[in-house]
Computed example of a mutant assay.
Amino acid sequence: MKKIITGTLTLIVLGNIVSCKKEPNTQSSVSTDTLATVLPKDSIVTSKTDSVAAAMPSTTATVEIITKNEGKYPHDIKLFEDKNFAERVKKLVGKEYDEMFKSFNVEGPIVSDNGIYKLHGCKQHDCPGYATSIYYDAKNDNLNVSIDKNGKITDFAEKGKITVSEALKNK
Results as ranks from 00 to 15, higher is better:
residue 160 G to V: 05
residue 118 K to M: 12
residue 62 T to H: 06
residue 139 K to M: 09
residue 68 K to C: 07
residue 36 A to K: 14
residue 134 I to C: 01
residue 148 D to K: 05
residue 138 A to F: 03
residue 70 E to R: 09
residue 22 K to T: 13
residue 148 D to R: 05
residue 112 S to L: 06
residue 148 D to A: 07
residue 87 E to L: 12
residue 44 I to E: 01
residue 119 L to Y: 02
residue 148 D to W: 04
residue 147 I to F: 04
residue 3 K to R: 14
residue 135 Y to L: 05
residue 8 T to D: 05
residue 85 F to C: 04
residue 121 G to I: 01
residue 146 S to F: 09
residue 23 E to C: 09
residue 70 E to T: 13
residue 5 I to W: 05
residue 143 L to V: 04
residue 76 D to C: 07
residue 154 T to P: 06
residue 159 K to F: 08
residue 159 K to M: 08
residue 58 S to E: 08
residue 158 E to A: 14
residue 92 L to G: 04
residue 19 S to A: 12
residue 4 I to C: 07
residue 71 G to I: 03
residue 12 I to L: 15
residue 11 L to R: 00
residue 52 V to L: 15
residue 38 V to P: 03
residue 152 K to F: 08
residue 1 M to D: 10
residue 1 M to G: 11
residue 19 S to W: 10
residue 151 G to K: 03
residue 153 I to F: 04
residue 121 G to V: 00
residue 36 A to E: 14
residue 158 E to W: 03
residue 133 S to G: 00
residue 144 N to V: 00
residue 81 E to H: 09
residue 28 S to Y: 11
residue 25 N to G: 07
residue 121 G to M: 02
residue 125 H to K: 12
residue 127 C to Y: 04
residue 91 K to L: 15
residue 98 D to A: 15
residue 93 V to M: 06
residue 33 D to Q: 14
residue 19 S to N: 12
residue 23 E to M: 12
residue 51 S to Y: 09
residue 9 L to K: 02
residue 110 I to Y: 00
residue 112 S to T: 07
residue 48 K to E: 10
residue 111 V to C: 03
residue 49 T to N: 13
residue 157 A to Y: 14
residue 149 K to C: 06
residue 56 M to P: 00
residue 152 K to N: 15
residue 26 T to C: 10
residue 49 T to Q: 13
residue 171 K to Y: 04
residue 114 N to E: 13
residue 87 E to W: 07
residue 115 G to A: 04
residue 33 D to E: 15
residue 12 I to S: 06
residue 96 E to I: 02
residue 82 D to E: 13
residue 97 Y to T: 03
residue 95 K to P: 08
residue 62 T to Y: 07
residue 49 T to L: 13
residue 118 K to E: 03
residue 60 T to W: 11
residue 111 V to R: 05
residue 114 N to K: 14
residue 149 K to W: 00
residue 159 K to S: 11
residue 121 G to R: 02
residue 112 S to C: 07
residue 10 T to L: 15
residue 59 T to H: 14
residue 77 I to E: 02
residue 165 S to R: 00
residue 91 K to F: 15
residue 24 P to K: 10
